[in-house]
């Protein structure tokens, strides 16, 4: 277990390093200089470049990034909030916290609603409830998040006036409702669909027949024998869900005018604020990698057949 965790951490660091390299070369490939404005002279640009170390060879710059990151120094912003340490922008300003709050909430909603809905559908297979849930989930995975977000905005904020049009800094409970629904609905539906399928799959397995032959109650068969087995594919899906929810936050934040990290990232890319681009990419990648690790460990807890040391398919 310990060696496994260490191995995984090593792999995660390596992955982050590669992501850093890719990001570094990509952002340096964005045409133009961050300091290029209508008024700036070549001398000014050169001066600014020298100040932030952008005049050094690329490979040296990359090395500096890596060394500084290992020291915990994420650099300072070049453009968006000139001179502010990137660490403060990401961790001490509301942007990151808002995005994380929204993301975790949506992830929780997807799991907490999706799995039971899938179970209910599988348990009542063929009933009107199953039919309704099937239609809902099928349509749900066909509606893009931004469509849902704007529709909600139009109906509940504009037409009915029940909810605020701008969620802003998410001051109260009401302002969370629409962003979280728009971010999680797709995943609620997907998780419910997945749970239903794998539940039905599990119900048809031989060990369910064995449990029935033992005289186990139907409720227990579903909750004990079928559910745990059917969770395996659902857990596998949670890694991509995390990445997907981060993605989803980009459009939802722009639709509901939430000053989150997603929107900020797009602005940084546009204005070539290298240190912020790098830090955001690394932090979000680390989040996804961390979730993948959590998923693998959850996997091990649910399915004893999986030995973490030799995970080969």
């Amino acid at each position: 277990m310990v060696t496994y965790t260490l191995k995984r951490l090593g792999a995660a660091l390596l992955t982050l390093l590669i992501i850093m390299t890719i990001t570094f070369f990509l952002m340096n490939a964005i045409p133009g200089s961050p300091f290029l404005t209508e008024k700036s002279t070549p001398q000014q640009i050169a001066l600014a470049n020298a100040k932030y170390g952008l005049d050094k060879p690329l490979i040296v710059q990359l090395k500096n990034y890596v060394v500084n990151y290992l020291k915990g120094d994420l650099g300072t912003s070049l453009k968006m909030q000139e001179g502010t340490p990137v660490r403060d922008i990401i961790f001490h300003q509301d942007k990151f916290i808002i995005s994380i709050k929204l993301g975790l909430l949506s992830l929780a909603v997807a799991v907490i609603l999706g799995i039971p809905l899938g179970c209910i559908a599988a348990y009542n297979r063929g009933s009107w409830l199953d039919g309704f849930l099937r239609v809902m989930t099928t349509v749900g995975v066909a509606i893009p998040g931004f469509v849902l977000a704007t529709m909600l905005l139009w109906i509940f904020a504009v037409k009915l006036g029940w909810l605020p049009t701008i969620s802003g800094q998410l001051p109260d409970f009401k302002s969370y409702i629409m962003p979280v629904i728009s971010m999680s609905f797709y995943y609620v539906c997907y998780v419910a669909k997945l749970t239903r399928t794998s539940m039905l799959d599990a119900i048809n397995q031989d060990y369910i027949r064995t449990a029935r032959a033992k005289g186990v109650k139907t409720k227990m068969i579903i909750l004990k024998h079928a559910l745990r087995n059917s969770l395996i594919p659902v857990i596998t899906y949670l890694g991509p869900v995390t990445a997907g929810i981060i993605t989803g936050s980009f459009v939802v934040e722009s639709t509901f005018s939430i000053p989150g990290l997603g929107k900020y990232y797009v602005q940084c890319v546009m204005s070539r604020d290298y240190p912020v681009i790098m830090a955001t990419t690394v932090v979000l990648s680390a989040l996804v990698i961390f979730m993948n690790l959590v998923v693998d460990i959850a996997y091990k807890i649910v399915d004893p057949r999986i030995t973490l040391t030799n995970k080969e398919d």
Binding site: L26, M27, I246, T247, V269, M270, S285
Partner: peptide, 15 residues
């Protein structure tokens, strides 16, 4: 798989 693809996609698009 581990790369949050949308971040890279956004960068790529601009690049």
């Amino acid at each position: 798989y581990s790369i949050p693809e949308v971040l890279i996609v956004l960068l790529l698009q601009v690049v």
